[in-house]
Design a protein around this nucleic acid. Structure first.
Lengths: 198, 198
DNA sequence: CACGGATGTTAGTCATCATTAACCTCATCG
DNA sequence: CGATGAGGTTAATGATGACTAACATCCGTG
């Protein structure tokens, strides 16, 4: 037990995170295949093949990135839904807040997440799809509770539309300060949902 | 004047359009750099370098695709705005219908249009950006007429959010028949806009 | 009917890129 | 102090892919 350090060294943790962040930015700007290993290394001050000390390869890097995003979102949703001591209205508000916060804080990840799934190799792709589906279903379940008369397909399509609305942050970057953006997106989404099931 | 045929032969027109369509589908699925010239040729039954009989290269193909989309959208907007014999409410409805129709009929083009601008080489990129900006401004102008008190930045961010909502069609493909999708998106967008300026 | 242009084809060519190999350095820890 | 392992480095290697060349076909027209 003397040799096993319970946590990786600080350096390694930082470098990995640094790489993931830089890669997200680059992938969002030029697409997965438009970015080279050299580009990514360069963005964090090391050169090219140093990446392989931290990831199994470019594919693995993308897989981990998307897996991380989809699990984080899914987990937040589960937490919100299960720990809420309140009714579906409040749960929906909380779901909206989680997604809005993520979209504002991590626009590059949002972009990559719904752009590059097609480039993830098969073992991971299935898992990411699964997490995404589960995330959508959390929303649909809450919406169904609020609007029992609405068909599930309609709620699902409306949910995708709301995601599109909330995930517009990469396009309106800098237009509006986050303080104004958050409540505006929340209000727009709420109104859109109400209109979808009317 | 005997030699100059005023319109290209029918074959050429068809092949060009075919190629553009297939390329759009492929780019939407795997990204610009994830698709090879061979892939595109193969998708229309010719092989690889035949492309160069119709386009100057892969970059030129993408440029033309995005230029076409952004001019078509922009032109429809101009037409709607200038030919309308009605008030801003009706104009907004018409703008929504145009965008919804396009998003439902051409999901692949919508996807490529807001994904691949970063891969368009410089002469064309500026022009596409310009057309996109003008398109947004058509919307903002109409919205400003309806809600004179709202700051332009807010209207612009709201417009981007509405585009995100409407352009969610590639994600909810098949969830809902187009007949139901159209009015639902229209209602959601309308409600979202109203909420944005409240 | 011969010719020219439009459209394809196949076989290079030349870059770029992911990945691997072989080798360095240095901090930690026994 | 010396071994060891984490994290880098540069130089192959092997694919892949955009683009070009050289050569075929076919069709409409003078």
């Amino acid at each position: 037990m003397t040799t096993a350090s319970p946590t990786p060294t600080r350096t390694r943790r930082n470098r990995r995170a640094e790489i993931l962040e830089a890669a997200a930015r680059l992938f969002a700007a030029r697409g997965f295949h438009g970015v080279s290993i050299e580009d990514i290394g360069g963005a964090v001050g090391v050169s090219g093949p140093a990446l392989y000390r931290h990831f199994d390869g470019k594919d693995a890097l993308l897989s981990e990135m998307l897996l991380d995003v989809s699990s984080r979102l899914r987990e937040s949703a589960v937490t919100v839904v299960t720990t809420a001591a309140a009714g579906p209205e409040e749960i929906l508000d909380a779901l909206l807040d989680v997604q809005i916060e993520f979209a504002i804080e991590h626009p590059a990840l949002i972009t990559v997440h719904d752009r590059e799934l097609g480039n993830v190799p098969e073992p991971a792709r299935r898992q990411i799809r699964r997490l995404q589906r589960l995330y959508v279903e959390e929303w649909v379940t809450v919406l169904a509770e609020l609007h029992p008369a609405a068909p599930a397909a309609r709620l699902r399509a409306a949910t995708h539309a709301v995601f599109g609305l909330l995930n517009s942050t990469p396009h309106s970057a800098g237009e509006l300060p986050a303080q104004d953006m958050r409540p505006m997106l929340h209000a727009m989404a709420r109104a859109a949902i109400a209109a979808a099931v009317r």
